[in-house]
């Protein structure tokens, strides 16, 4: 464990909690892409299947349980409890266009072909693009609630910090995982224009609105 990865995991946890609180407190999931949340739940489910048969550390297991529980709780809030506030008209990204390429790619480029490794590789590729339905929805509505922009910033910052963690691990442990690094860089790049808008607007107290 290193400080960059710890900060990354904290950002990740903050993002998930902020989203849950936003939906719970405002009793509304307006502006939130349920499809992205489905993809995130799938990412954690396919990545953390080892939760039941390997033990890395208490921290690792506790965080996995939190991520799994909170992602399914978010799905429940969106598609069951506050279903009436779900903006399905704007949440129209075709996630099959993300799922199928990720399945194919995880069969073409993977460390090995054991089921758990294939699931891990699929989850890495899927996580890189899981935010696309949400970013697509923000571009369609042209704006996002400030709390939603904080959620997106924390979520983007988590993987950006993981890139720093990978650089650190490369130089200190000569550890590198090319699949995770490439996917993580793509994932972070997808947030680039959002980061720009967030820093130039939201941090100056303005609303998060895309230039018309």
């Amino acid at each position: 464990m290193n400080i960059f990865r710890l900060l990354g995991d904290i950002c990740h946890l903050v993002a998930i909690i902020v989203l849950l609180l936003k939906i719970w407190k405002t009793r509304s999931c307006a502006g939130i892409s349920g499809k992205s949340q489905i993809l995130f739940a799938l990412v954690y489910t396919t990545r953390y299947v080892d939760l039941f048969f390997t033990y890395v550390s208490l921290y690792n297991s506790v965080m996995k349980v939190i991520f799994l529980a909170s992602s399914y709780a978010t799905l429940y809030l969106i598609y069951v409890k506050f279903k009436a506030t779900y903006d399905f008209n704007h949440d129209t990204f075709r996630i099959e266009f993300l799922l199928i390429p990720c399945v194919i790619l995880s069969l073409l480029i993977t460390h090995d072909y054991s089921p758990v490794e294939l699931l891990w590789t699929f989850s890495i590729y899927l996580e890189a693009v899981a935010i696309l339905p949400q970013l697509f929805m923000v571009s369609k509505t042209g704006e996002a609630e400030t709390i939603t922009s904080h959620y997106l910033f924390a979520l983007g910052a988590y993987r950006a910090l993981y890139i720093v963690n990978w650089i650190y691990r490369y130089y200190t442990e000569s550890f590198i995982d090319g699949i995770a690094v490439v996917a993580g860089i793509i994932q972070t790049i997808l947030y680039a224009d959002f980061f720009y808008l967030y820093i130039t607007k939201v941090l100056k107290g303005k609303d998060f609105k895309l230039p018309a």
């Binding site: 990740h12 080892d50 054991s114 993981y162 995982d177 995770a180």
Partner: peptide, 10 residues
């Protein structure tokens, strides 16, 4: 290396 050695990150 085992799965958890390779993938010790979240």
């Amino acid at each position: 290396a085992s799965f958890s050695d390779l993938h010790d990150e979240l």
